[in-house]
């Protein structure tokens, strides 16, 4: 089986003034369909770079990134847009909802760029919002919701175009621990339904939600294995199964 996500000896360097920063230093790993992976690392470990590359927002300097067997590094900007639209569902730390649109329109944005008709967009968006428990707030604006509710909207949006990968970047970072837990439970539920989830976080206790941990330090993979492995270095939060 071809892995869904595959990094082959991937490097990403940035030039900052006259120093070269190696944000990703020969990283190789692969993620299969249906996995729930947490990419863990401190600030500056290169996890944001990985997230940008997995999310097709950025391309590697060298090495290869294959998404669903296709080499992303060789794609044009338009193809990157298309693949983001079709294959990826983003969940951001700051929710990143569009403040002027109601929830229905917010959730329908990926479908808009996928070229779906208005009726279909609305129907799908409504279904997704109902799924995250916000079916009664279809026409509210994001600023009328609590943080946890906004993050649920962004999950609904990530799911709307049925992506291959759900990419969550510090999804609980702006939430209190209780609502954060709710969001993580939702991610686990998505995983159980067969979705591939990639969680990016600096917080070990949050990373513990995942099946598998990829730990990054200074742009290198220092651990790649199941979360249950003691060497993973993540504390199991007892409440979560």
């Amino acid at each position: 089986m071809t892995p869904l996500i595959e990094f082959r000896d991937l490097c990403k360097t940035y030039v900052m003034g006259d120093t070269i920063v190696r944000a990703a230093d020969h990283i190789s790993f692969s993620v299969n369909e249906g996995e729930f992976v947490a990419i863990v690392g401190k600030s500056g470990s290169g996890k944001s770079t990985c997230m940008n590359i997995i999310g097709c927002l950025d391309v590697p300097t060298s090495g290869e990134y294959l998404l669903d067997g296709r080499n992303v590094g060789a794609m044009s900007k338009n193809e990157l847009s298309e693949i983001r639209n079709a294959k990826l569902g983003f969940i951001f730390q700051q929710y990143n909802l569009l403040p002027k649109l109601d929830l229905l329109d917010n959730v329908a944005v990926p479908l808009l760029y996928a070229g779906k008709g208005k009726r279909e967009r609305r129907a799908t968006a409504q279904k997704m919002l109902e799924r995250v428990g916000l079916g009664d707030k279809l026409h509210n604006r994001p600023n009328q919701l609590s943080g946890g509710q906004q993050q649920r909207v962004s999950i609904a949006r990530a799911l709307s175009n049925s992506p291959s990968v759900i990419l969550a970047d510090e999804p609980t970072g702006a939430l209190d621990s209780r609502t954060g837990r709710e969001v993580l439970e939702m991610l686990q539920a998505l995983h159980k339904e067969g979705n591939t989830v990639v969680l990016i976080t600096h917080d070990n206790s949050i990373a513990a939600t995942a099946q598998r941990i990829i730990r990054l330090e200074d742009g290198r993979v220092t651990f790649d294995g199941p979360a249950s492995d003691p060497k993973a270095g993540v504390e199991k939060a007892g409440a979560m199964a």
């Binding site: 338009n78 639209n85 944005v109 990926p110």
Partner: peptide, 16 residues
């Protein structure tokens, strides 16, 4: 700017 970023992340092409 942020809105543009969000739209691009969600699949908006430069042309859109």
């Amino acid at each position: 700017t942020r809105e543009i970023g969000i739209r691009k992340a969600l699949g908006a092409k430069e042309s859109s």
